[in-house]
Design a protein around this nucleic acid. Sequence first.
DNA 1: TTCATATGAGACATTTTTGTCTCATGGGGG
DNA 2: CCCCCATGAGACAAAAATGTCTCATATGAA
Lengths: 182, 182
Amino acid sequence: MSVDRDQVLRAAAALLSRKSTATMDEVARAAGIGRATLHRHFAGREALVRALEELGIREFEAALDAARLDDGTAEEALRRLVAGVEPVAGLLSFLVTENQLFEGEVNEGWSRLDARVSALFRRGQERGEFRFDLTPAWLTEALYGLVGTCAWAVQDGRVAGKDFQYMIVELLLGGARRSVEK
Amino acid sequence: MSVDRDQVLRAAAALLSRKSTATMDEVARAAGIGRATLHRHFAGREALVRALEELGIREFEAALDAARLDDGTAEEALRRLVAGVEPVAGLLSFLVTENQLFEGEVNEGWSRLDARVSALFRRGQERGEFRFDLTPAWLTEALYGLVGTCAWAVQDGRVAGKDFQYMIVELLLGGARRSVEK
DNA sequence: TTCATATGAGACATTTTTGTCTCATGGGGG
DNA sequence: CCCCCATGAGACAAAAATGTCTCATATGAA
């Protein structure tokens, strides 16, 4: 009977990250509820977006914690991170887009998480695992971009869902080039 | 005195690819013209979007032609493509987003261009340059994603403009991992 | 200089979206 | 079994965006 708030937010993120012009009515239908109910749970569109941000940050932070970015090799940590991020891809994608908007001041919570991802890549560089000519900032952005892209590709059936982690990590770490050692 | 149509479209793409909820008024101001003038040149928002798609397809096609995707190694061709795509990154990014929208039927022109990029990656695989475990479809999507991501990162100052091509091609081809031969 | 014309600003009507409300319904807990 | 209460549907008003129009102005060409 009662609506699952998080499930609604997930559906909203999945829709809004692809079509940010979607109306409240479209969001409600995408979540399988009535517009009135959507308004009962979120005061308005802005409140919905803020709730989306909060949940996204919370879940992304949990994924970062669970990935234990400081343990083992950076590559292993990255693999754990991508695995943990998969179920949150829609929210993360929304979060990235939202924080790319120049106008709105960047969410403090977001930049903290951003820094943790960046630190992972820096650690990989310092360990000699990752290249130095690709900056941590760029690798961070690229990771977000690939996660969003792959999530879309999976939804549209261009990439098999089971390949999500593999496609992202392999491309990000190894690249498309067939190197001699492979 | 007279407005440069293409320049307006470029400004619109740059804005709309980041904030697709932007108002016609915001688009007009971003292009440095009045709202009335924007309406004089494009019958409405839908007409603007269609014009954006047309220009994007035209320019992307020109970039594909100029890159001579069938000449030399696939890697060289990809480098030429990314170089040629740089000035059109905003339009391309808009185009990708627009054609990811499930609802609207995919633009025929777009899928033709999409197939050309895909064919480049397939050629690379057949030549033994690229890995087989990353599908051409995924590499294509990833290229679009990285181009959009990098264009944003440059605009926000997180990546230096002069590194645009390098960051994209190196990541896409070589990946972040420091391989033995480097 | 003079004229034709494209422009910006802004008023205005229309349409779309948003936000609020009521009411009937149905599922779940007591 | 019955009642409570969250829900969906839809009516409605308010707000926002869109599209059209007029008019004064400025630019570029003749």
